[in-house]
């Protein structure tokens, strides 16, 4: 564990708390992509079920339980409690275009051709693109509530911080994980446009609006 990874994980944790706060206080999931949230459930279940056979630390297990639990809870909120505020007609990204390529990539690129390792690779690839339905929805509506952009910023910062973590681990432990690093760089890259608008507009007190 190093500071980059810890801050990254805390940013990830914060992003989910911000999202829950947004949904609970506004009693609405407007502006949130159900598809992205469903993909995160798939990511967490595929990767974190290893907590049943691989113990790393109490911190690691507790975070895994939290991420699986909170992501399922968010789906429940969107699908049941605040269902009327969820508008599927603007959440139109075709997720099979993500699921199928990720499944194929995980069969080719993995560290061992066994179900648990293929699932691990699949979750890494899927996580890197799971935000696309959300970004696509943002692009379509052209604007977002400030709190939704804080959620996205925290989520993006989480992955961005994993990059210095890998650089640090390369120099201190001599290890490099090509699958995680490649997917992580792609994932962070997807946020660059969003970050630009977030830092130049939202943090300056302006509304999040995309140029037409």
């Amino acid at each position: 564990m190093n500071l980059f990874r810890l801050l990254g994980d805390l940013s990830h944790l914060a992003s989910i708390l911000v999202l829950l706060h947004k949904i609970q206080t506004s009693r609405s999931c407007r502006g949130i992509s159900f598809k992205t949230q469903a993909l995160y459930v798939a990511v967490f279940v595929a990767r974190y079920l290893d907590l049943f056979w691989r113990y790393i630390s109490l911190y690691n297990s507790a975070m895994k339980v939290f991420f699986i639990g909170s992501s399922c809870y968010i789906l429940y909120l969107m699908k049941y409690r605040y269902r009327p505020t969820n508008d599927p007609s603007i959440d139109t990204f075709r997720i099979e275009y993500l699921l199928v390529p990720c499944a194929i990539l995980s069969l080719i690129f993995n560290y061992n051709f066994m179900p648990t390792e293929i699932l691990w690779s699949f979750s890494i690839f899927l996580e890197s693109v799971a935000i696309l339905p959300q970004l696509f929805m943002l692009q379509r509506t052209g604007e977002a509530e400030a709190i939704t952009t804080h959620y996205l910023a925290a989520l993006g910062i989480y992955r961005a911080l994993y990059i210095p973590n890998w650089i640090y681990r390369y120099f201190t432990e001599g290890v490099i994980d090509p699958i995680a690093v490649t997917a992580g760089i792609v994932q962070t890259g997807l946020y660059l446009d969003f970050f630009y608008v977030y830092f130049t507009k939202v943090l300056q007190g302006q509304k999040f609006e995309l140029p037409a």
């Binding site: 994980d9 990830h12 895994k64 560290y111 994993y162 432990e173 994980d177 995680a180």
Partner: peptide, 10 residues
């Protein structure tokens, strides 16, 4: 063990 360091990451 798989030759991956990231299995201890979240």
């Amino acid at each position: 063990a798989p030759p991956s360091s990231s299995h201890d990451e979240l």
